[in-house]
């Protein structure tokens, strides 16, 4: 082993820490978008490292669809208490009540797209000028084109065809009034990197990532958790299955996989043998070929 050598995971960690410090220095009011999922949990750990021994110098914001796994909320609240940082909850239900967002019609309504309104409102209301997201380029093909520092215009829109070139580690966060940036410190991480980092750093994650028995319903080939927010379609039935979640999002569109993985090592084995991407269990991405790109253009995460 070479004396001055950093492993790839350590290089990724260093890259993310650099980005976070750069954002805290270039912007006036950054915020970290926290979903309670593994990627945002890893981001929080990286933010701790970036500013240690000082506290994380920005708040966390959770875009709450109201369709939450209880375990995630509990986990979120404990984490925030431990860190001593401010948590802002921006509620999709409130956006609906205020008439800014309209609940989808049809048999399988999702609040996924509605989050855009709440997210952009939250950013505007608190005058955030940079928002950290946990998006990774390996996740989805539109994300593969995303910059670390991703410009959003005054309407929160992303213009993928006209992005600023990003060279070396010189990040250009210059913007006009009312515009903001989305920043993706985990851009170069893969799903495997995230899991290996969680294992190596011994980072706690919500229990629903591990195997548990749950009532589920199979829809479009994906197991969805039974909840008050889901109504059965003709021919569907509730079953009990030993499952776990590969991603965590809105309950109505986050699919589970049948799994016995009870330890982080089991998850890693499972991920390394997986033949489907983690977003393969997300019904929100299955709506059309460019579903992610279209949502992102409007201001999605």
């Amino acid at each position: 082993m070479q004396k001055y050598h950093l492993s790839h995971l350590s290089q990724l960690e260093n890259e993310a820490v650099f980005i976070m410090r750069e954002v805290a220095s270039q912007f006036e009011k950054p915020v970290l978008l926290f979903s309670g999922g593994k990627d945002s949990i890893v981001m929080v750990r990286l933010a701790q490292k970036a500013f240690w021994p000082a506290k994380i110098p920005f708040p966390l914001m959770h875009i709450d669809t109201g369709h939450n796994f209880e375990e995630t909320i509990e986990f979120r609240d404990n984490l925030v208490k431990e860190l001593g940082v401010e948590l802002i909850v921006a509620s999709v239900q409130e956006s609906i009540d205020e008439g800014k967002a309209v609940e989808e019609k049809g048999a399988n309504p999702s609040r996924n797209k509605l989050q855009i309104v709440t997210l952009l409102d939250g950013i505007e209301k608190h005058k955030f000028d940079a928002a950290f997201g946990g998006g990774r380029r390996d996740e989805e093909k539109a994300r593969a084109k995303e910059r670390f520092f991703s410009h959003r215009d005054e309407f929160g829109q992303w213009d993928p065809k006209n992005q600023r070139p990003e060279l070396w580690n010189l990040f250009n966060g210059k913007k006009h009034m009312g515009e903001h940036f989305r920043v993706f410190p985990l851009s170069n991480w893969t799903e495997m990197d995230v899991w290996q980092y969680i294992a190596a750093e011994n980072i706690p994650i919500p229990h629903i990532y591990y195997t548990h028995e749950r009532e589920v319903v199979k829809r479009d080939g994906v197991y969805l958790a039974n909840s008050p927010f889901i109504s059965l379609l003709e021919g569907e039935k509730i079953e009990k299955k030993q499952i776990r979640f590969r991603t965590i999002g809105d309950m109505t569109c986050t699919g589970a996989v049948v799994s016995d993985a009870s330890k982080i090592e089991d998850i890693i084995m499972e991920v390394s043998a997986a033949r489907e991407t983690e977003r393969g269990t997300r019904t929100d991405d299955k709506r059309s070929e460019a579903a992610m790109e279209d949502r992102k253009k409007e201001g999605y995460f």
Binding site: H8, R137, D138, E140, K141, A142, R143, A144, K145, P160, K161, Q163, S187, N188, T190, M192, D193, E289, A290, E293, D294
Partner: peptide, 26 residues
């Protein structure tokens, strides 16, 4: 070629990042 315009026009517009690993290197 992840973007709608790229697929429609059959051209690559922007740098795309891809990841793979062998046991030795990422």
């Amino acid at each position: 070629d992840g973007l709608r315009a790229e697929r429609e026009q059959g051209i690559t517009i922007d740098v795309a990042y891809r990841y793979f690993a062998t046991p030795k290197r990422k």
